[in-house]
Design a protein around this nucleic acid. Structure first.
Lengths: 210, 210
DNA sequence: TGTACATCAGTGAACGCGCGTTCACTGATGTAC
DNA sequence: TGTACATCAGTGAACGCGCGTTCACTGATGTAC
């Protein structure tokens, strides 16, 4: 018991507050949508005074962009984890449906943020999300192109399948986000729906390519 | 030139103002999203004083619900028109893609409203839109069930195809809405994409049903 | 280790602004006779 | 047709409120010696 109780470096404390702000904004935007919440609401929820907000972000729009980054970094992390699982190669579709539901459930708030602000947000936020989704389509195309059944397809076809998969992912994420808690039956239904749709896309493609 | 210049009945004048309000709200919500606009902005844009708004709607939420109704009534009208065209039966998919792009272009504002507020709007507006879309899926299923190739399918399968079609319609409508004016090349690209996706769904279904 | 000064995350008062909503009103349209 | 009264869509002033942003500040953390 010397002088102990080391109080945290300035930098660490600042980072902590930054996270409080991000968490507050994410939390509030679940009920009202990010575009509808005010700087003062966020500050109140984060336990700081409104003016302190400016030590971290220049505007609500910048905070929104930070949330976009955070959301997609979460998503990428999950995909990377899932890819390490060897079972994925055996049945990409079941795995994808599983990962989709599981990870969306775990990071509901981030997915809800993306799903809503993708169309309902400010110009800047919408553009950022669209850009990330476009990137994501390309990344997924690379993964798909390596799969056994797909490696013979034209890269244009792979790109299109990837686009359909991502579009489906967004739609299904919306459904999971709207899903009330504690309804495993609904969850299973969405998972089954996602599985069917992906199978549909793959089969349709295989049989159609001229 | 007696007493002429009949000035409009009270009822007709009221209706006219109501339409001005609806048009103003629709117009404003194209740039900012309906959930973000204020009662006073709408009144200003409609050329009335803020308090006059209350002679027509109790709140912005009620105005939003009126816009939902208007939008879907527009959509239904177009579908009904399209069904009268005999060519539709020959090639439901090409016709649907065509109708989609044409009608969305014509009523861009209504579709933009639905696409945005479906996820970004207030609770009440979101629920109203979801309800209308659910209705629409069922209506489309009835139309599909009568088509030559489909009449043998189980009604569950038809319902699912209908759901996928509507989901696709929403996604494609979003794209058309974001499309800058005077780019017929982009328009054609979206139309082709919609066509491909619908064909994919139909083919995938036919080949997969066990 | 101790002292003196610099940095800077968070504070609190103050501002002007647009908001939704209330209220009593006006004056044209509608109705009864 | 003309008059007297009722209706009611739209007006305009006023209100209290939460907003984003400014500014000078405080006091703990960091740094130099």
């Amino acid at each position: 018991m010397t002088e102990s109780a080391q109080v945290a470096s300035r930098q660490a404390q600042k980072e902590r507050t930054r996270h409080l702000i991000l968490a507050a904004a994410l939390d509030l935007s679940q009920t009202q949508g990010f575009a509808q919440i005010s700087l003062r609401q966020v500050a109140r929820h984060a336990g700081i005074v409104p003016t302190a907000f400016y030590r971290h972000f220049d505007s609500m729009d910048e905070l929104g962009l930070a949330l976009v980054e955070q959301s997609f970094s979460t998503l990428r992390h999950m995909i990377r984890e899932a890819q390490r699982d060897p079972k994925v190669l055996d049945n990409i579709i079941d795995a994808a449906a599983q990962v989709l539901v599981e990870t969306v459930k775990q990071s509901k708030a981030h997915f809800a943020f993306v799903a809503r602000e993708r169309v309902g947000g400010s110009e800047a936020v919408r553009r950022a999300i669209q850009h990330e989704l476009d990137l994501f389509v390309s990344e997924l195309a690379v993964v798909l192109a390596r799969l056994p059944n797909i490696e013979t397809w034209s890269s244009e076809d792979v790109q299109m399948v990837s686009r359909l998969f991502v579009r489906n992912m967004v739609s299904n994420a919306e459904e999971v986000v709207d899903m009330p808690d504690g309804r495993p039956d609904l969850e299973e239904k969405i998972k089954e729906g996602a599985r069917r749709q992906m199978r549909l896309i793959v089969i349709g493609f295989r049989d159609w390519r001229s």
